[in-house]
Structures are given as C-alpha cells and as structure tokens.
C-alpha cells in the first residue's frame, strides 16, 4: 500500500470472510465483505442481529480473526494496528470498572500506555469536558445514570491518541430520549475531534442521522447488501429527521434491509 492510500483510507476490506466453527456446525458470520472507510468518515453498520456487523467491528479491532480475504487498518494488519493502539473501542455496555471512579476509569488506558501524571490529568479533564461529564470525576460508576456511564466510556476511548473510534451499539441499551440527546452530542464531538468513526446500530433513524456512509448488512451469511453515501449536510439539527431527504435515505436503508431478507434479491 502506498503512503497516499494510507493517509486517506483507514480501513480497507477485500473479500473478507469469517466462519465460526460451532458445535452446531459452521456459521458464516461474514461472507465476501469489501468496503473502505476513509479518514474522517462516520460509517454506520446496520442490519438485523446475526448480520455480522459486530463481528466486522471486532475484526477491525483484532478481537476476531478473519478466515478469508484481506483487511488493513491504517495500512497495517489489525494485530499491528492494535499494538500501535490505533483505535478506541466503545462496547454496547459501558464496561466501566466499578472499583474505579470516573476519572480513574478514563485514566485506565493512559496508565496502561504509560502517560505521565500531568498528561493524564490534562487528558482526563479535556475528555470529560468533551462528553459533558465535568464535575463527576470523583463519582463511582454506579452513582451515574446509564447514559452518563456510556458517555464516560466514550471519554475513555477518546483519552488516548487514536484517530479511529469503533462503537458497537453504544446507545442500544438507552431509552429513546437519552439516545437522541447522545446522538446529537456524538455528532458535535465527531465534528470537534475529526475522528473516523465506525458505528454499529440496529436503528434506521440513528444510522441515517449520524452517518456520512451507511453500510446495510443482512444475515445468513453475514454480508453487505447496500452501501449508501449520505447526501445530508454536515450540520444536522435533530429535526432534520423530518426532511424529505432524510426520509428518502431512510427508505433506501429499509429497502436494503428488506432485500437482504429475500434470498432472490441479493445485490
């Protein structure tokens, strides 16, 4: 891969496949997935459960090993990229450590990566401010609401210098009102930090609202059925979801999901 390609393409997958050997036989979690994530993209992966969207994210993170095809992250293998700490991962559950205060939770990756005390304090303050959790530094996770806990876990993923943020249904367990709020916050945060974000969701409005690119997937075997480049402007107030443009994209996503379910119409 050339240097020019490296600076624009963050993730590049070619014919990627992953088959799990389970007691009930082989399960094809990913089949022939090819796509690019460019620097600064906000890419959503949407599809019903079992479509391989989480698996794909875990392959990028080197938490699962592909059994076919090729994938590079920042021009490196996922394992090399992981060792260089090139991405931050936000899981569906906040996965905060209950024995650590919020600031200590954010400090965890910084401790592991050997940041100095002063640097740690600086970054904790900066990222907690970024996710609007200023003043909650000394609280323990159980003292915070679910939405606040998930924001703390986002702060933790932002604390170190990874340009790629992998988010696996981070707001899936939250109620609609909190989710709307956090979606708007996430867009602001993305605009301020200029990170590349890969975002797994099963909500159509969420995917359309957030993304510059929507990857529609379908199950058995997990595969990509449509890739939609969003035509929505960068500035997105919440009521953009009522506009015809938004509804048109949402319609196309829904069509893509429907196509994935009937086996005659695979793209």
């Amino acid at each position: 891969m050339t240097d020019g390609g490296k600076s624009h393409t963050v993730v590049e997958a070619q014919g990627l496949g992953l088959t799990f050997n389970t007691a009930d036989g082989d399960v094809e979690a990913l089949s022939n997935v090819s796509l690019d994530i460019r620097r600064g993209d906000f890419v959503s992966f949407i599809g019903p459960s079992g479509c391989g969207k989480t698996t794909f994210l875990r392959v990028i993170a080197d938490l699962e090993q592909p059994t076919a095809g090729r994938i590079t992250v920042n021009g490196l293998s996922p394992a090399e990229a992981r060792m260089q700490r090139s991405y931050g991962y936000v899981f569906q559950a906040p996965a905060l450590f209950p024995w650590r205060t919020i600031e200590k939770n954010v400090a965890l990756p910084l401790e592991i990566m050997g940041y100095s005390d002063a640097e740690r304090r600086d970054r904790i303050a900066r990222t907690l401010d970024l996710v609007n959790l200023k003043g909650f530094e000394k609280k323990f996770p159980w003292q915070l609401s679910g939405g606040m806990q998930q924001r703390a876990s986002i702060a933790r993923a932002l604390a170190f210098d990874a340009d790629l943020l992998l988010m696996d249904e981070p707001f899936g367990a939250l109620d609609e009102i909190v989710r709307d709020y956090l979606n708007a916050e996430l867009l602001k945060l993305w605009a301020r930090t200029k990170k590349t974000i890969a975002f797994v969701t099963h909500s159509i409005p969420e995917a359309v609202y957030l993304s510059t690119k929507i990857v529609v997937m379908s199950p058995r075997p997990g595969r990509v059925t449509d890739i939609i480049e969003s035509t929505l402007p960068a500035e997105r107030p919440l009521d953009i979801r009522e506009t015809p443009e938004f509804l048109a994209i949402a319609h196309r996503v829904r069509e893509g999901l429907r196509a994935g379910h009937s086996y005659e119409h695979t793209e």
């Binding site: 060792m83 700490r85 991405y87 899981f91 592991i112 990566m113």
Partner: peptide, 12 residues
C-alpha cells in the same frame, strides 16, 4: 467480564 478483558486487549 469478557468485555473488560476485550477492552484490555484493545489497549494492548
């Protein structure tokens, strides 16, 4: 939890 161990793995 598996999630906590995964998280540590992402930090290498």
């Amino acid at each position: 939890e598996a999630l906590q161990l995964d998280l540590m793995r992402t930090y290498n």
